[in-house]
Structures are given as C-alpha cells and as structure tokens.
C-alpha cells in the first residue's frame, strides 16, 4: 500500500515537475508569466490526433508533435511577448492570455468542441505488477523519462556555454548582453526548451487522458503555476520540487479525503498559492540573486 502510494506520487509528480520546469524557464530568465503555456499541450494533442490516419509509426507522430510544441512555444514569443516586452508586466500577461484564447478557439473553429481521441500505443496502458504494486506501464515510463530529462537538462545548464548563458541571463540580462551574448539567442532558446519540456510532458499527459479538446491546456497550466509558486518562481530546482510537492498533496487528498470534500481540493491548493505569495513570495527555493525584468 505504501509502496503503491510512493509510485503514484512519483509518476504524477514527475509529470508536474516537467510542466513546472518548462514554465519557470521563461519566467526565470525573462520575468514573463506565460499564460499560453498550457496550450502547448493542446498543440501536442491535436498534432497526434491529426496524424492519426498517417502510415507513420506512433513514435514518429509523437516526435512530430513535440517539434510542433517547440515551434509554437517560439511562436508565442514572437506573437505575444516580443512586441510588448518593453511595456508593462500587465500588457505581457494579457497578450499571452489573448494568445491562449486564440489557440483554443482556433481548435474549436477548425476541429471541434468535442473531445477527440488521441491514439496511444496499447502497451502504455498494460499493467505491471511488482512488489505488490500494480501500475500501468505509462506511469513507470513517466518516471523514467522525467528523470532522464532532468539529468540531461541539468547537465546542459551546467556544461554547455548556452546553458551557462541562460543561467547568467536569469541573474542579469543586460550584463550577458554586454558580454556579447545575443539577447535573441537566449530568449529563443528559453522558449524552445520550454516547448520541448512541455512537449514531452504533454505527450505523457496525453497517454494518461487519451483525448484532446479545446480546453485541454488549462489543467497543465494550473499545475505548472501552482507548482512554480510553491517551489519558487525563479528557481529550476524549486519548480521541480514544487511539482513533486503538488503531486504529493493531490495524491494524499485522493487517498485520504471522502468524495464530497475532495471537490474542494482546488480551493485548498489555490489558497496555498495565495498564502505563499504573501508569506514567502520567492517560494521554497530561492532563485538566483538578482533579477531585473528585461
């Protein structure tokens, strides 16, 4: 029972952590709240859905969907952020909100309001049993893929010059530019990586819910938001930690609370968000020292 609980928290938490990491990347470097972030999951879902009839193997479809997610993430920068970056925080927030609405309604207009089935390889839903734990294969894959992504991500941020430049930009954007590091390179890389992480997480998310509809991005967006506020809006470690904590809270509620109280779960998690913003706005893990909005 306890082991089952651990596996459940880890598999959910790994997904949440990936989502949160993708959101915090852009916020950490550019101090921009990306309300259109959840729509990358919409892009993933519809991309796979639209490739359904094609003769390609599933992994190719998923790969294409992830590329689409990266493309759309960079596109978000060009449409919603770049033209208004000089203006107020509010302006940037509203443009990303508008862009999210635009994508949702484009899906509504061009495809359908009804949920569409997203094909998934059948082995993902097979159950495996070990040490008294019964869990679908996709949960184990989620854990595995997430830890792999985190290792690659941390190595990239630590070892590559671009990774260093991104970390430096998160501390002092202007100083990195004064060292000859192009601002656009850093920004586009941040959005591309955000799209990649959301793409991978989104594909895993799709394997769980198996269908896509215009409002599909809201839940991942909220998850990423709550997790980053809890963990620390400016720290990548914080975002990952926040993802696991949120999964722990959600899962514990599922295990412990009766149905009629469970429906107030969101009240609780969003109250935590407000409390943290009030008491410890930097979240559990503090980000890099300074951070002036660019």
């Amino acid at each position: 029972m306890f082991l089952q609980y651990i596996v459940d928290v880890l598999s959910l938490g790994s997904l949440y952590a990936l989502f949160a990491l993708g959101l915090v990347l852009v916020y950490g470097i550019l101090k921009l709240v990306n309300f259109a972030y959840g729509e990358l999951v919409l892009v993933i879902g519809y991309s796979i859905f639209l490739l359904k009839g094609s003769p390609f193997p599933w992994f190719f479809m998923a790969g294409t969907a992830i590329v689409m997610s990266i493309v759309f993430s960079i596109f978000t920068d060009y449409v919603a952020f770049r033209p208004v970056r000089e203006k107020s925080v509010t302006a940037v927030l509203i443009t990303s909100f508008a862009f999210a609405t635009l994508l949702q309604n484009a899906a509504l207009l061009l495809i359908s309001a009804k949920p569409k089935n997203v094909p998934m390889p059948s082995f993902l839903s097979d159950s495996v049993q070990f040490l008294g734990v019964i869990t679908p294969v996709r949960n184990l894959i989620s854990i595995f893929v997430t830890f792999l992504c985190l290792i690659i991500f941390y190595q990239f941020m630590k070892r590559s010059t671009l990774g260093l430049a991104m970390r430096a930009a998160a501390t002092n954007f202007n100083m990195t530019r004064m060292l000859g590091i192009p601002a656009n390179l850093v920004i586009t890389s941040a959005f591309a990586m955000s799209g990649l992480l959301a793409g991978i997480a989104g594909t895993l998310w799709m394997s769980k819910i198996a269908n896509v509809f215009p409002g599909v991005g809201l839940e991942p967006l909220l998850i990423a938001f709550i997790a980053t506020v809890i963990g620390g809006m400016r720290s990548v470690h914080g975002a990952v930690l926040g993802g696991f904590i949120l999964a722990f809270i959600d899962m514990s509620f599922n295990y412990l609370l009766p149905q009629d109280i469970l429906k107030f779960r969101d009240v609780f998690t969003f109250s935590i968000v407000i409390l943290i913003l009030l008491i410890r706005p930097q979240g559990l893990v503090k980000g890099p020292a300074t951070g002036i909005r660019t």
Partner: peptide, 17 residues
C-alpha cells in the same frame, strides 16, 4: 463557433502593441 473570440484576441494583441 469560436470566430468571435479569435477576432477579439487578435484585436487585443494589436491594441496592446
């Protein structure tokens, strides 16, 4: 359906720019 929101969101983005 959805055309209204699409036009509205494009308008907003243009306005904010």
């Amino acid at each position: 359906i959805g055309l209204t929101e699409i036009v509205l969101s494009i308008t907003i983005i243009i306005f904010l720019i």
